[in-house]
Simulated assay, not measured.
Amino acid sequence: MTLPLLTLLLAAVLVVAALYSSVGHGGASGYIATLALFSVAPAAFKPTALVLNLVVAGVATCIFFRAGHFSWRLFWPFAVTSIPCSFIGGYLSLPDHIYKPLVGLVLVASALRLSFHSERKTEPVRHPSMPVAFLAGALLGLLSGLTGVGGGIFLSPLLLLLNWGKVREVSAVAALFILVNSAAGLLGHLSSLQQIPSFVPPLAFAALSGGVIGSYLGSARLPVAGIVKALSLVLMVAGFKMLLV
């Protein structure tokens, strides 16, 4: 890869990280789409996205947690089953012609539904039942490991649409959910004797910079309505990228 092309790739990763981290996401689907646009080998998609997810989700978790938005009660029922399932998914491989259209359709459907969502202050937040949370966590964890997308991009719309949490609370929970599942998925990937590409470290630095910017804006500066719109836009763009790239 030439220096000008690498510079453009670094800039794209920084922008993706900033946008996704503003809503508590690691940005894996955006990184996968970006790597595809830059003609990077598909075998590098999952490990690269998982590493960048770890960096950005780690930053987002710290910033949203310090801002007081994190809810352990909402987080743990989903995480307890998602972590082992994410490891299994990271170990396994799914053919591109199956997982990319599937993930793309789910993202676009979530974006369309979420675009009509607004946080209603008069409607109390409901907490999911344990069996439902365990099942959802297992499914999202497996999908996270198989595709390398972290799982938060599916968890956020689920929590918001079912009124299981407030917007910034959901962003904080999604950030840690992505962090633990990306770590589990990456461990599963490495345990199957697959490697991390050599160009990942500079991309990780770009993702770290974008993650700091986006998390700071999302945790305190951006209005709630803006965060919901940003999340919907992110889901829509990522979905079409997965379907078309």
Rank of each mutant, 00 (worst) to 15 (best):
L187A: 06
L187V: 00
L233I: 01
A206N: 01
F116G: 13
L161Y: 14
I98G: 15
R66C: 07
L52W: 00
K241D: 08
C85E: 00
A41T: 02
M130F: 14
G30L: 08
L102Y: 08
S39T: 09
S191M: 10
P223G: 14
V56D: 00
P84S: 07
F45R: 01
H117M: 04
A183R: 03
H25T: 03
L5S: 06
S29C: 09
G141D: 08
S22P: 08
R113G: 13
K46Y: 00
F78E: 06
V80K: 07
H97Y: 14
P131S: 12
G24K: 01
L222R: 12
K121F: 10
F199P: 06
E119G: 11
A67T: 00
G145V: 11
I88G: 07
A12L: 11
F75H: 03
M1I: 05
C62T: 07
P4T: 03
Q195W: 08
L162N: 12
L146Y: 13
H97S: 14
W72Q: 08
V55C: 03
L35C: 04
A230H: 13
G165M: 05
W164T: 04
P77F: 06
A109R: 04
A11F: 15
G165Y: 03
P124E: 10
A138F: 05
G185T: 06
I63T: 11
F87S: 10
G148L: 08
F177E: 05
V15I: 09
P201E: 12
L14H: 09
L235V: 10
A111S: 15
S22V: 06
G150I: 04
L179M: 07
V55L: 00
L193A: 08
P128N: 02
G89Y: 00
A109Y: 01
S144Y: 04
F45A: 03
C85G: 02
L190G: 03
I227W: 07
A43H: 10
G218A: 12
V106W: 03
V23M: 09
S118P: 00
L217K: 02
G239M: 05
L10F: 15
L243R: 07
A220D: 15
L35M: 11
I98V: 15
E169N: 14
P101R: 01
I88L: 14
Q195I: 02
L243I: 10
S93N: 09
P4Y: 12
L231W: 10
S219I: 01
I178H: 10
I98Q: 15
